[in-house]
């Protein structure tokens, strides 16, 4: 798929989702908003995963984006949700740029464990910080968009639309990045990092930048989440939250960013329905779901429509 076609398809998809949103009940609008906000964090994991690494600590950047946005609201009085999202994204990207070069020195399980450790340190600090609400966290009132306060059904739809557009644009950028020379280099690092070094490219610097991109996306997701949820707490950085992001990325497979959002929505749906009908065993339902995916779609949901290059040698690349 060419880059122009990709952008057109993405724009069409976003427009369709905006229209569909008009017909959705409020609870589902909220669910999709959360699924999009969480999904974009997993898209970030995909950026790292294509280079052969998995971060088990995206909760860190998710929490940083969330807290940065939430504190900007409560402490600085910034209410515009777009500005809050930009602040969350920038804060997480800065942290990613700072720790990325350190993390990129490691590979495999060491990388994964270090990211996990960093996120758990953040969790520990947050839980002991009464200034930001300690383990209870704090609430954030509904923000504004272009000066209008986001309340009622209209406000819910506006947040939904914002989530679709912001995550849609970010995911399209990631899909374009996959098709860039950088994206190809990232795949080559996964395939043979030693050769890439011998060709004159620093594997570490490519992976550090990938980590920074993933951090920015994580912060974006965190900020979007608190804007919609109206609440933040240290569990944003807890390992189960990071695990969920990895879970969604694996569920989706590394072929397609669209699949990540489908997987994220599936997770939110399974969670809310299981919570309703068998509240004590909902994790089991999730486990069975993952098991079914691993058995029947080992390359993830995305492999249903993307990444079948072997069957059609003429195709030029992956679909979004």
């Amino acid at each position: 798929m060419s880059r122009t076609v990709l952008v057109l398809v993405a724009a069409g998809l976003m427009a369709a989702l905006l229209l569909i949103g008009l017909a959705l009940p409020r609870w589902l609008l909220f669910l999709v908003t959360l699924a999009a906000s969480h999904g974009i964090v997993s898209v970030g994991i995909l950026v790292i995963m294509r280079g052969g690494l998995v971060s088990f600590g995206q909760g860190l950047v998710f929490a940083i984006g969330g807290y940065a946005a939430a504190l900007s609201f409560t402490q600085l009085g910034i209410t515009d949700v777009i500005v809050l999202i930009l602040i969350g994204t920038a804060a997480a990207a800065l942290v990613g740029a700072a720790v990325g070069p350190l993390l990129a020195r490691y590979t495999g399980i060491f990388f994964g464990m270090l990211t996990l450790a960093l996120s758990m340190v953040a969790y520990g600090v947050l839980i002991k910080s009464p200034a930001v609400g300690g383990s209870d966290g704090f609430n954030i009132p509904r923000g504004t968009l272009f000066g209008v306060r986001l309340e009622g059904a209209g406000g819910d739809y506006a947040l939904y639309a914002l989530a679709i557009l912001v995550t849609g644009i970010a995911a399209t950028a990631v899909a374009l990045h996959t098709r860039s020379a950088r994206g190809l280099m990232t795949r080559a690092i996964h395939g043979n990092g030693l050769r890439v070094e011998y060709l004159g490219t620093s594997v570490q610097s490519v992976m550090a930048i990938n980590f920074t991109i993933a951090a920015a996306l994580g912060g974006l997701g965190g900020a979007l989440t608190i804007v919609a949820l109206g609440h933040i707490e240290p569990t944003f950085a807890f390992w189960t939250q990071s695990g969920e992001f990895v879970f969604v990325a694996i569920l989706a497979g590394s072929h397609s960013v669209t699949a990540v959002f489908i997987a994220s929505l599936a997770l939110e749906l399974v969670r809310s329905f299981s919570n309703l009908y068998f509240p004590n065993t909902w994790q089991m339902a999730l486990g069975l779901f993952l098991l079914a995916i691993i058995l029947f779609l080992p390359a993830g949901i995305g492999s249903l429509w993307a990444g079948r290059r072997k069957a059609s040698p003429s195709s030029g690349g992956e679909t979004p």
Binding site: A181, L184, M185, A188, H190, G191, R195, V196, L199, T201
Partner: peptide, 17 residues
């Protein structure tokens, strides 16, 4: 080489590098 990439993609990696 990167065996999951095509011959041309391997070349493009080398040229981009």
């Amino acid at each position: 080489l990167c065996i999951e990439l095509t011959a041309e993609e391997n070349m493009l990696v080398a040229i981009a590098a």
